[in-house]
């Protein structure tokens, strides 16, 4: 029990420490850019994993990032609100739209849920791309989004300041989601993922849990979207298409969906790997694809489960545990 309570504090502390030391080591804009992207992806993968924790692979997750981004961009440029208001308003718009969309999509499950959410994401993307061009900018994108305004005398125009803002946002999200995962909600979500019928018969309102995870996840995605809009200052519908969504799934699953720390490991390792592989030019995608296949074949529960698997293997070699000890689900 003590270990359960200590692990999240240590994990969050480690992320906070790493995020805080980076700007002390380097002010190079490339490294800060990569680090900001990692933190942005982290909020996305952790909120995606919140939904996976109830057993749902939501392929429209990236669309709620897009909804938050477009909502905030329009509220700032057209209505004249401050970034610090739209940061929450944009996320709120994403969460509000998540209620009807989630209610509809969650009526189906398994591969059908996967595909209906994919259909939703394409509808949202094509909507931003082909309709109301005056408002959303159409295929050429929405341009001229200002950077965040002043807050409490702080100016957010350089890379280090924006990195700091993303780091604070990310830490808030990490603390909230880790607390949630170690709470009653997290336990119930795990029960739903492993055996939703049993959970239902024990009196859990499975639909409401799934919808709550969907709406909460969408709120966080919207938050990341608002930051994205004012960080990049340009929005294209393809920023929220299949390709970035697929990368989110890859980060999360490679890290491991059984633990709240899986997406953290996966996002950091895979983002760094893709930056390093960039040196290989033409072979980058080839190697990246091969890495995916091999990881899933040799570490089917993700990187985060590797240490446990290695320990079991070691014990088996010493002949202390029966061979089937490794067959269970990741905790």
């Amino acid at each position: 029990m003590e270990r359960r309570a200590a692990a999240p504090v240590a994990g969050v502390g480690l992320i906070a420490l790493a995020a805080a030391t980076l700007p002390l080591i380097t002010r190079d804009s490339y490294y800060l850019d990569v680090a900001t992207t990692i933190l942005m992806n982290l909020t996305l993968t952790m909120s995606f994993r919140l939904q996976v924790s109830t057993g749902q692979i939501n392929m429209a997750h990236i669309s709620f990032m897009g909804i938050g981004a477009y909502a905030s961009a329009l509220l700032v440029t057209r209505v004249g609100l401050s970034f610090w208001a739209t940061l929450w308003l944009g996320a709120l718009v994403a969460a509000l739209l998540a209620v009807p969309i989630g209610s509809v999509a969650l009526r189906v499950s398994g591969p059908y849920y996967f595909l209906i959410t994919f259909a939703f994401s394409e509808v949202v993307r094509l909507f931003f791309n082909n309709f109301f061009e005056g408002l959303f900018g159409g295929p050429s994108g929405l341009v001229g989004i200002p950077k965040p305004g002043r807050l409490l005398g702080l100016v957010f125009d350089g890379k280090p300041a924006l990195y700091g803002l993303m780091a604070v946002l990310c830490l808030i999200v990490v603390v909230a989601l880790v607390r949630l995962d170690y709470s009653r909600f997290g336990l119930t979500a795990g029960a739903i993922r492993q055996a939703d019928l049993v959970a239902e018969t024990l009196g859990v309102n499975v639909f409401r849990y799934k919808l709550t995870a969907f709406v909460l996840g969408s709120f966080v995605a919207g938050l990341a979207g608002v930051f994205f809009a004012h960080f990049r200052q340009v929005l294209h519908s393809s920023d929220f298409g299949l390709e970035p969504m697929v990368l989110l799934v890859v980060f999360t699953v490679i890290g491991g969906t059984g633990s709240v720390w899986g997406p953290v490991i996966g996002t950091i390792v895979m983002t760094l790997a893709s930056e390093l592989l960039r040196e290989l030019h033409h072979y980058e995608i080839l190697v990246f694809g091969a890495v995916l296949i091999l990881t899933m074949l040799f570490a089917p529960e993700g990187l985060v489960a590797l240490s446990g698997a290695a320990r079991r293997r070691l014990r088996r070699l010493r002949g202390r545990a029966p061979a089937q000890a490794g067959a269970g689900l990741a905790p």
Binding site: V246, V253, T257, V291
Partner: peptide
Amino acid sequence: LNAFIVSLGLLWVMQA
């Protein structure tokens, strides 16, 4: 989920 990632990897390997 695992098959999704693996087939995605195969997609990239084959396209590249």
